[in-house]
């Protein structure tokens, strides 16, 4: 079985996010990029499927900032068999529709049985890569998946809804799934293994196809949240605090 995982790097949320001078987007020179957390789950789910049902996993992504190699080496260390990066002249903030178009062009040639990707990413939160891939490839799509097994040409997909309702859905292969969480937490890739792989492994390169239509969304302004008003902390023991609360309430005419 041919499993493909689409990966995407996004600005690290561990840092503060500085804005560019125009205030139109992040200052991409001043942020570190990391792999989208949902994509880590997609990769784990892909490797789990392979371990259970056989097949090969291909990890691929758009090399937006020329730093995808480490992500792909890590994917290989975790059990992917092949890695592809899509190269070209990119803007670091390329939107999900554009990325999906680039990814789909390469994935089509891989004739996949199963395409997995993170259900969404923290940078745009639009959850569009999966559905757009499915549209480009003309395949069925299931999103917000929390577990997936494959048997006899069918993917059994597990979803969890609010209120503890769960659903198991059967989808004919090939299909695309947006992964919310893998059936098991993503495994750890020891650095020595990643480094070993970095020395020997080959990452295939694919030229980005001509960009198709973008999301049609233009980012006009980005700003840090402005603090409006602030909380006053009442210090002291219970009695003192209670007295202060009464004062405040009386002051506002509420008592």
């Amino acid at each position: 079985m041919n499993i493909v995982v689409a990966l995407k790097q996004i600005p690290s949320m561990a840092d503060e996010l500085p804005l560019n001078a125009q205030g139109s987007n992040l200052d991409f020179d001043e942020v570190d990029f990391v792999l989208n957390e949902f994509d880590e789950h997609a990769l784990e789910q892909a490797v789990l499927v392979k371990e259970k049902s056989g097949g090969a996993v291909t990890a691929l992504g758009v090399d937006l900032i020329e730093a995808l190699d480490d992500v792909l080496y890590t994917a290989l260390a975790k059990g992917a068999d092949k890695a592809i990066k899509i190269v070209g002249d990119f803007e670091p903030g390329a939107d999900s529709h554009t990325q999906a178009a680039w990814l789909a062009a390469v994935i089509r040639d891989l004739s996949p049985d199963l395409v997995l990707t993170g259900v969404q990413a923290a940078n745009d939160l639009d959850g569009q890569i999966g559905p757009m891939l499915a549209a480009h490839l003309d395949l069925p799509y299931v999103g917000v998946v929390t577990g997936l097994e494959v048997a006899q040409g069918v993917a059994k997909v597990h979803k969890e809804f609010a209120g503890g309702v769960v659903a198991d859905i059967e989808v004919d292969l090939p299909c695309v799934a947006g992964i919310q969480a893998a059936a098991k937490p993503p495994r750890y890739a020891p650095i020595s293994k990643i480094r070993q792989i970095a020395k020997t492994a080959q990452i295939a390169e694919a030229e980005a196809a001509a960009a198709g239509p973008d999301a049609g969304v233009t980012l006009r302004r980005m700003a840090k949240p402005v603090a409006t008003g602030r909380a006053d902390m009442l210090a002291g023991d219970a009695k003192q605090v209670a007295a202060k609360i009464i004062d405040i309430l009386t002051e506002r005419g509420l008592l």
Binding site: S12, A14, D15, E16, E30, D32, V34, Y188
Partner: peptide, 16 residues
Amino acid sequence: ESLSKNGNWFGQGKRA
């Protein structure tokens, strides 16, 4: 994982 990404185990960015 934080150590390999951020160089610290507090889950905070390098710049912090």
